[in-house]
Design a binder for these strands. Structure first.
Length: 295
DNA sequence: ATCCAGGATGTAT
DNA sequence: ATACATCATGGA
Protein backbone atom coordinates (compact mmCIF):
# COMPACT_ATOMS: atom_id res chain seq x y z
CA UNK A 1 0.00 0.00 0.00
CA UNK A 2 1.17 3.45 -0.91
CA UNK A 3 0.08 6.49 1.07
CA UNK A 4 0.73 10.18 1.50
CA UNK A 5 -0.92 13.56 1.73
CA UNK A 6 -1.28 16.70 -0.33
CA UNK A 7 -0.93 20.02 1.49
CA UNK A 8 -3.73 22.38 0.62
CA UNK A 9 -2.43 25.57 2.26
CA UNK A 10 -0.71 26.85 -0.83
CA UNK A 11 -3.52 25.90 -3.19
CA UNK A 12 -5.09 29.00 -4.77
CA UNK A 13 -8.72 29.04 -3.71
CA UNK A 14 -8.31 26.02 -1.45
CA UNK A 15 -10.01 22.66 -1.77
CA UNK A 16 -13.03 21.01 -0.16
CA UNK A 17 -13.40 17.29 -0.74
CA UNK A 18 -16.97 16.71 0.40
CA UNK A 19 -18.68 19.40 -1.65
CA UNK A 20 -16.58 18.47 -4.66
CA UNK A 21 -17.60 14.82 -4.49
CA UNK A 22 -21.22 15.20 -3.31
CA UNK A 23 -22.44 18.10 -5.45
CA UNK A 24 -23.70 15.90 -8.26
CA UNK A 25 -20.70 16.31 -10.56
CA UNK A 26 -19.35 12.80 -10.14
CA UNK A 27 -20.96 9.52 -9.13
CA UNK A 28 -17.74 7.51 -9.15
CA UNK A 29 -16.69 7.83 -5.49
CA UNK A 30 -18.04 5.76 -2.60
CA UNK A 31 -18.10 7.20 0.91
CA UNK A 32 -17.08 4.81 3.69
CA UNK A 33 -19.43 5.75 6.50
CA UNK A 34 -22.68 6.02 4.56
CA UNK A 35 -24.25 3.74 2.03
CA UNK A 36 -26.06 6.60 0.34
CA UNK A 37 -25.59 10.29 -0.22
CA UNK A 38 -28.88 11.39 1.32
CA UNK A 39 -27.13 13.84 3.59
CA UNK A 40 -25.91 15.85 0.63
CA UNK A 41 -24.97 19.32 1.73
CA UNK A 42 -24.40 18.47 5.34
CA UNK A 43 -20.91 19.79 5.90
CA UNK A 44 -18.03 18.53 7.90
CA UNK A 45 -17.57 14.99 6.71
CA UNK A 46 -14.03 13.71 7.16
CA UNK A 47 -14.91 10.31 5.74
CA UNK A 48 -12.84 8.27 3.34
CA UNK A 49 -13.94 8.23 -0.28
CA UNK A 50 -12.83 5.51 -2.68
CA UNK A 51 -12.75 5.13 -6.45
CA UNK A 52 -11.08 2.79 -8.93
CA UNK A 53 -9.28 4.27 -11.94
CA UNK A 54 -7.56 2.04 -14.49
CA UNK A 55 -7.60 -0.82 -12.01
CA UNK A 56 -5.94 1.27 -9.31
CA UNK A 57 -7.71 1.90 -6.01
CA UNK A 58 -7.61 5.50 -4.76
CA UNK A 59 -8.79 6.36 -1.25
CA UNK A 60 -8.85 9.91 0.05
CA UNK A 61 -10.04 11.94 3.01
CA UNK A 62 -9.92 15.61 3.97
CA UNK A 63 -8.22 16.41 7.27
CA UNK A 64 -7.78 20.07 8.10
CA UNK A 65 -5.35 21.42 5.52
CA UNK A 66 -4.30 18.08 4.14
CA UNK A 67 -5.73 15.72 1.61
CA UNK A 68 -4.73 12.29 2.89
CA UNK A 69 -4.63 9.38 0.51
CA UNK A 70 -3.87 5.69 0.39
CA UNK A 71 -3.76 3.78 -2.86
CA UNK A 72 -2.30 0.96 -4.89
CA UNK A 73 -0.03 3.52 -6.59
CA UNK A 74 1.28 7.01 -5.91
CA UNK A 75 -1.97 8.96 -6.02
CA UNK A 76 -0.63 12.52 -6.11
CA UNK A 77 -0.76 13.02 -9.86
CA UNK A 78 -4.07 11.15 -10.15
CA UNK A 79 -5.76 13.29 -7.50
CA UNK A 80 -4.35 16.51 -8.90
CA UNK A 81 -5.90 15.65 -12.24
CA UNK A 82 -9.22 14.20 -10.96
CA UNK A 83 -9.88 17.19 -8.65
CA UNK A 84 -8.33 19.83 -10.93
CA UNK A 85 -6.04 20.97 -8.10
CA UNK A 86 -3.99 22.93 -10.64
CA UNK A 87 -6.91 25.28 -11.30
CA UNK A 88 -6.36 28.72 -9.79
CA UNK A 89 -9.77 28.68 -8.16
CA UNK A 90 -9.34 32.07 -6.50
CA UNK A 91 -8.68 33.72 -9.85
CA UNK A 92 -11.55 31.85 -11.51
CA UNK A 93 -14.01 33.08 -8.89
CA UNK A 94 -12.51 36.55 -9.04
CA UNK A 95 -12.93 36.67 -12.82
CA UNK A 96 -16.60 35.65 -12.56
CA UNK A 97 -19.12 38.51 -12.44
CA UNK A 98 -20.40 39.68 -9.08
CA UNK A 99 -24.09 39.37 -8.39
CA UNK A 100 -26.08 38.37 -5.31
CA UNK A 101 -26.74 34.79 -6.42
CA UNK A 102 -23.18 34.00 -7.51
CA UNK A 103 -21.69 35.66 -4.43
CA UNK A 104 -23.85 33.56 -2.10
CA UNK A 105 -23.15 30.38 -4.05
CA UNK A 106 -19.36 30.87 -4.02
CA UNK A 107 -19.38 31.80 -0.34
CA UNK A 108 -21.41 28.72 0.59
CA UNK A 109 -18.90 26.11 -0.58
CA UNK A 110 -15.37 27.47 -0.40
CA UNK A 111 -12.89 25.20 -2.13
CA UNK A 112 -15.37 23.23 -4.20
CA UNK A 113 -13.77 22.31 -7.52
CA UNK A 114 -14.92 20.93 -10.84
CA UNK A 115 -13.94 17.28 -11.20
CA UNK A 116 -12.26 15.63 -14.16
CA UNK A 117 -13.96 12.25 -14.40
CA UNK A 118 -12.80 9.48 -16.74
CA UNK A 119 -14.76 9.70 -19.98
CA UNK A 120 -16.82 6.51 -20.22
CA UNK A 121 -18.00 6.39 -16.58
CA UNK A 122 -18.93 10.06 -16.80
CA UNK A 123 -20.84 9.52 -20.03
CA UNK A 124 -22.86 6.60 -18.65
CA UNK A 125 -23.46 8.37 -15.32
CA UNK A 126 -25.08 11.33 -17.02
CA UNK A 127 -27.07 9.20 -19.46
CA UNK A 128 -28.54 7.69 -16.30
CA UNK A 129 -29.09 11.15 -14.82
CA UNK A 130 -31.96 12.09 -17.15
CA UNK A 131 -35.06 13.00 -15.09
CA UNK A 132 -33.47 11.51 -11.97
CA UNK A 133 -32.64 12.94 -8.58
CA UNK A 134 -29.02 13.15 -7.54
CA UNK A 135 -29.50 10.63 -4.72
CA UNK A 136 -30.98 8.12 -7.16
CA UNK A 137 -28.19 8.63 -9.71
CA UNK A 138 -25.75 7.58 -6.99
CA UNK A 139 -27.86 4.46 -6.45
CA UNK A 140 -28.02 3.61 -10.15
CA UNK A 141 -24.27 4.01 -10.68
CA UNK A 142 -23.60 2.02 -7.51
CA UNK A 143 -25.87 -0.73 -8.82
CA UNK A 144 -23.94 -0.80 -12.10
CA UNK A 145 -20.67 -1.19 -10.19
CA UNK A 146 -22.01 -3.96 -7.97
CA UNK A 147 -23.53 -5.90 -10.87
CA UNK A 148 -20.83 -5.56 -13.55
CA UNK A 149 -17.71 -3.95 -12.09
CA UNK A 150 -14.40 -5.71 -11.71
CA UNK A 151 -13.61 -6.62 -8.10
CA UNK A 152 -10.45 -5.08 -6.71
CA UNK A 153 -8.93 -6.05 -3.37
CA UNK A 154 -7.13 -3.41 -1.39
CA UNK A 155 -6.01 -3.31 2.22
CA UNK A 156 -8.36 -6.11 3.26
CA UNK A 157 -11.41 -4.55 1.59
CA UNK A 158 -13.05 -5.23 -1.74
CA UNK A 159 -14.00 -2.45 -4.14
CA UNK A 160 -15.52 -2.43 -7.58
CA UNK A 161 -14.48 -0.51 -10.65
CA UNK A 162 -17.02 1.15 -12.90
CA UNK A 163 -17.91 -1.40 -15.60
CA UNK A 164 -16.15 -1.17 -18.93
CA UNK A 165 -17.92 -0.44 -22.22
CA UNK A 166 -17.43 -4.09 -23.16
CA UNK A 167 -19.16 -5.23 -19.99
CA UNK A 168 -22.15 -2.93 -20.51
CA UNK A 169 -22.39 -3.71 -24.23
CA UNK A 170 -22.61 -7.39 -23.32
CA UNK A 171 -25.60 -7.04 -20.97
CA UNK A 172 -29.29 -6.74 -21.77
CA UNK A 173 -31.75 -3.92 -21.52
CA UNK A 174 -33.94 -6.05 -19.25
CA UNK A 175 -31.15 -6.57 -16.71
CA UNK A 176 -30.47 -2.84 -16.60
CA UNK A 177 -34.15 -2.18 -16.01
CA UNK A 178 -33.94 -4.55 -13.05
CA UNK A 179 -31.24 -2.26 -11.67
CA UNK A 180 -33.67 0.65 -11.78
CA UNK A 181 -32.43 2.41 -14.91
CA UNK A 182 -35.93 2.60 -16.39
CA UNK A 183 -36.15 3.90 -19.94
CA UNK A 184 -32.45 4.78 -19.87
CA UNK A 185 -31.55 1.08 -20.00
CA UNK A 186 -31.48 0.80 -23.82
CA UNK A 187 -29.56 4.09 -24.03
CA UNK A 188 -26.77 2.67 -21.89
CA UNK A 189 -26.53 -0.59 -23.86
CA UNK A 190 -26.54 1.17 -27.23
CA UNK A 191 -23.99 3.78 -26.23
CA UNK A 192 -21.72 1.06 -24.81
CA UNK A 193 -22.07 -0.81 -28.11
CA UNK A 194 -21.12 2.32 -30.02
CA UNK A 195 -18.02 2.78 -27.87
CA UNK A 196 -16.90 -0.82 -28.40
CA UNK A 197 -17.59 -0.86 -32.14
CA UNK A 198 -14.52 -0.44 -34.28
CA UNK A 199 -16.07 2.23 -36.44
CA UNK A 200 -16.31 4.52 -33.45
CA UNK A 201 -13.15 6.12 -32.16
CA UNK A 202 -12.96 8.03 -28.89
CA UNK A 203 -9.75 9.84 -29.71
CA UNK A 204 -11.31 12.88 -31.46
CA UNK A 205 -13.26 14.08 -28.45
CA UNK A 206 -10.15 15.18 -26.58
CA UNK A 207 -9.03 17.43 -29.39
CA UNK A 208 -12.29 19.21 -30.17
CA UNK A 209 -13.22 22.68 -29.07
CA UNK A 210 -16.14 22.98 -26.68
CA UNK A 211 -19.04 23.45 -29.10
CA UNK A 212 -17.71 20.82 -31.50
CA UNK A 213 -17.27 18.34 -28.65
CA UNK A 214 -20.76 19.04 -27.34
CA UNK A 215 -22.32 18.48 -30.75
CA UNK A 216 -20.27 15.35 -31.40
CA UNK A 217 -21.29 13.83 -28.05
CA UNK A 218 -24.98 14.01 -28.97
CA UNK A 219 -24.33 11.23 -31.49
CA UNK A 220 -24.46 8.80 -28.56
CA UNK A 221 -27.87 7.37 -27.75
CA UNK A 222 -29.38 9.03 -24.70
CA UNK A 223 -27.10 12.05 -25.01
CA UNK A 224 -28.76 15.36 -25.77
CA UNK A 225 -27.33 18.84 -25.28
CA UNK A 226 -27.62 18.86 -21.48
CA UNK A 227 -25.92 15.51 -20.90
CA UNK A 228 -23.30 16.47 -23.49
CA UNK A 229 -22.60 19.65 -21.54
CA UNK A 230 -22.12 17.61 -18.35
CA UNK A 231 -19.54 15.40 -20.08
CA UNK A 232 -17.83 18.48 -21.53
CA UNK A 233 -17.61 20.11 -18.10
CA UNK A 234 -16.99 17.16 -15.76
CA UNK A 235 -14.77 15.02 -18.00
CA UNK A 236 -13.38 16.89 -20.99
CA UNK A 237 -12.38 20.00 -19.07
CA UNK A 238 -14.45 22.56 -20.98
CA UNK A 239 -14.99 25.01 -18.12
CA UNK A 240 -17.24 27.20 -20.27
CA UNK A 241 -19.90 24.47 -20.56
CA UNK A 242 -23.12 25.24 -18.69
CA UNK A 243 -25.44 22.24 -18.34
CA UNK A 244 -28.98 23.64 -18.54
CA UNK A 245 -30.90 21.44 -16.13
CA UNK A 246 -34.20 22.26 -14.46
CA UNK A 247 -32.49 23.97 -11.52
CA UNK A 248 -30.31 26.28 -13.55
CA UNK A 249 -33.18 27.04 -15.94
CA UNK A 250 -35.37 28.25 -13.10
CA UNK A 251 -32.43 30.25 -11.76
CA UNK A 252 -32.02 31.89 -15.18
CA UNK A 253 -35.74 32.67 -15.30
CA UNK A 254 -35.58 34.30 -11.89
CA UNK A 255 -32.16 35.97 -11.83
CA UNK A 256 -31.10 36.40 -15.47
CA UNK A 257 -34.35 36.81 -17.45
CA UNK A 258 -32.48 38.41 -20.36
CA UNK A 259 -30.77 35.02 -20.83
CA UNK A 260 -34.02 33.03 -20.78
CA UNK A 261 -34.17 32.62 -24.54
CA UNK A 262 -36.00 29.94 -26.50
CA UNK A 263 -33.91 26.98 -27.49
CA UNK A 264 -31.03 25.28 -25.71
CA UNK A 265 -28.28 26.77 -27.87
CA UNK A 266 -29.53 30.33 -27.51
CA UNK A 267 -29.93 30.10 -23.74
CA UNK A 268 -26.55 28.41 -23.45
CA UNK A 269 -24.74 31.12 -25.37
CA UNK A 270 -26.49 33.88 -23.43
CA UNK A 271 -25.62 32.50 -20.00
CA UNK A 272 -22.05 31.72 -21.05
CA UNK A 273 -21.63 35.31 -22.19
CA UNK A 274 -23.02 36.45 -18.88
CA UNK A 275 -20.92 34.18 -16.63
CA UNK A 276 -17.67 34.37 -18.59
CA UNK A 277 -15.05 31.84 -19.72
CA UNK A 278 -15.38 29.73 -16.55
CA UNK A 279 -19.18 29.70 -16.67
CA UNK A 280 -19.23 26.02 -15.78
CA UNK A 281 -17.75 26.77 -12.38
CA UNK A 282 -20.45 29.35 -11.75
CA UNK A 283 -23.13 26.91 -12.90
CA UNK A 284 -21.91 24.14 -10.61
CA UNK A 285 -21.80 26.42 -7.56
CA UNK A 286 -25.30 27.75 -8.29
CA UNK A 287 -26.65 24.24 -8.85
CA UNK A 288 -25.24 22.94 -5.57
CA UNK A 289 -26.27 26.06 -3.69
CA UNK A 290 -29.88 26.03 -4.90
CA UNK A 291 -30.26 22.28 -4.52
CA UNK A 292 -29.04 22.19 -0.91
CA UNK A 293 -30.58 25.34 0.48
CA UNK A 294 -33.35 24.74 2.96
CA UNK A 295 -35.15 28.06 3.14
C1' DA B 1 -53.20 10.85 -5.91
C1' DT B 2 -50.45 14.10 -8.41
C1' DC B 3 -46.20 16.14 -9.33
C1' DC B 4 -41.37 16.16 -10.04
C1' DA B 5 -36.50 14.74 -10.75
C1' DG B 6 -29.12 17.31 -13.45
C1' DG B 7 -33.86 15.11 -20.50
C1' DA B 8 -33.83 12.50 -24.75
C1' DT B 9 -36.19 10.37 -28.45
C1' DG B 10 -39.67 9.61 -32.02
C1' DT B 11 -43.20 11.60 -34.63
C1' DA B 12 -46.07 14.98 -36.77
C1' DT B 13 -46.27 19.51 -38.49
C1' DA C 1 -36.54 23.75 -37.34
C1' DT C 2 -40.20 23.43 -33.77
C1' DA C 3 -44.04 21.41 -30.86
C1' DC C 4 -45.64 17.55 -28.46
C1' DA C 5 -46.36 12.93 -26.38
C1' DT C 6 -43.88 9.34 -24.35
C1' DC C 7 -40.57 7.14 -21.75
C1' DA C 8 -39.55 4.24 -15.75
C1' DT C 9 -39.01 4.87 -11.11
C1' DG C 10 -39.37 6.43 -6.45
C1' DG C 11 -39.93 10.10 -3.16
C1' DA C 12 -42.54 14.05 -1.42
Amino acid sequence: MDQGSIHLDTLDGGFDLQSTLESGQTYLWERDDETTYEQVGKRGSNAWYTTVVNGEVLRVRHRENRLEWEATVDATAHLTRLFRLDDDLASIINATPDDPLLDRAFESFPGMRIVRDPFFPCLISFICSAQMRVSRIFEMVSNLREEYGEIIEFNGQTYRAFPSAEQLARTSEAKLRDLGLGYRAPYVVKTAEMITSNEFSLAPFRDLEYVAARDALTAFVGVGPKVADCVCLFSLGHLEAVPLDTWIRSAIDEHYPECALDGYDQMSEAIRNRFGPHAGYAQTYVFHYLRTRTD
